[in-house]
């Protein structure tokens, strides 16, 4: 029962933020680009639910538009990781023990030696800061996460008798990977995707915070926090609302991911406990 509750709360939070991001395309309470110095640093309440910043911009509106940046960056980064990582993992598993497998795995080790922040720093040092660079940095970091997970899970599937049956029927390794292996990995990949998504939101916030992510005037949660830092003591609402937005988005995605995992995995649903160490190990590639 508790598991289903996780799923529902997580889904609700996710829907809330995705809706906020989508609505911001057509409508926000106030314009987020134009400045309104007369109304600067308003406390929450009245017209401005979450108050205004030092340029008089509406915080709620900025959070809505910021959700767009967060979601876009994290989603594309997860997409890059999946599109490149999953096939690499499948190839490595299908050619277990060969040079190809070895190359793919060593390549993964190499990327793993660079925390996402370092990749972002390197890219920024060369190309200058931008949201696209943040996507690339987080995306590159996601590749080995998915490649390793896919390979490990696929290897155990290759041991199954039904794969042998398919081989006895004369099917090629490529076809078996597509027909038998990948469909049985989907649940796992969706769960991991959700978790990488939440890590992506955190990473994007971190990169924007230090100025390596989205550049002004594009609103982003991380930069809102960075700009509010010096005013925290007298205008805490500037930092509290974007911070809570990050916390609730990440929390929602994590709860949703955990809930999905329990929902998909009957073994975990019926007995034992909530998560396996491997699952957390895979989750915790935090930058």
């Amino acid at each position: 029962m508790r598991r289903r509750r996780n799923l529902v709360i997580g889904a609700l939070l996710c829907v809330l933020f995705i809706a906020a991001a989508l609505v911001s395309f057509v409508w926000t309470p106030f314009d987020v680009i134009s400045l309104d110095i007369a109304n600067k640093l308003k406390t929450p309440g009245g017209e401005h639910w979450f108050g205004t910043d030092h340029f008089g911009r509406d915080i709620l509106s900025m959070i809505m538009v910021g959700a767009r940046t967060s979601i876009a960056v994290a989603l594309v980064a997860v997409g890059i990781g999946m599109v490149l990582g999953v096939p690499l993992g499948l190839f490595a598993a299908a050619s277990r023990g060969t040079l190809l497998d070895e190359l793919i795995m060593r390549g993964n080790d190499l990327i793993f030696a660079f925390p996402a922040l370092l990749i972002a720093i390197l890219i920024t040092a060369v190309l200058g800061p931008s949201a696209v660079n943040a996507i690339i940095a987080i995306g590159i970091f996601n590749i080995p996460v998915f490649a390793r997970l896919t390979r490990a899970a696929a290897l155990s599937l290759w041991e199954r008798d039904y794969i042998l049956s398919a081989r006895v029927a004369g099917k090629s390794k490529l076809r078996i990977s597509a027909e038998h292996i990948l469909p049985n990995l989907l649940n796992l990949l969706i769960v991991q995707g959700t978790i990488q998504f939440s890590l992506g939101v955190l990473a994007e916030a971190g990169l924007s915070y230090v100025g390596l992510g989205a550049q002004p005037p594009t609103p982003s949660w991380g930069r809102m926090l960075a700009e509010s830092q010096t005013m925290f003591s007298f205008a805490p609402h500037l930092a509290i609302f974007p911070g809570l937005a990050i916390v609730f988005t990440v929390l929602g995605l994590n709860l949703f991911g955990d809930g999905l995992r329990d929902y998909f995995d009957p073994r975990l649903r019926h007995n034992r406990h909530d998560e396996t160490p491997e699952a957390i190990v895979n989750d915790e590639r935090v930058s």
Binding site: L202, Y209, F232, A239, G243, I246, V247, F248, L251, N254
Partner: peptide
């Protein structure tokens, strides 16, 4: 711990400082 994972450490740092 669920909450701890979701809080960005730089934001937590700002709160600690305050």
């Amino acid at each position: 711990t669920q909450l701890g994972v979701a809080i960005p450490n730089f934001w937590f740092a700002m709160i600690l400082v305050t």
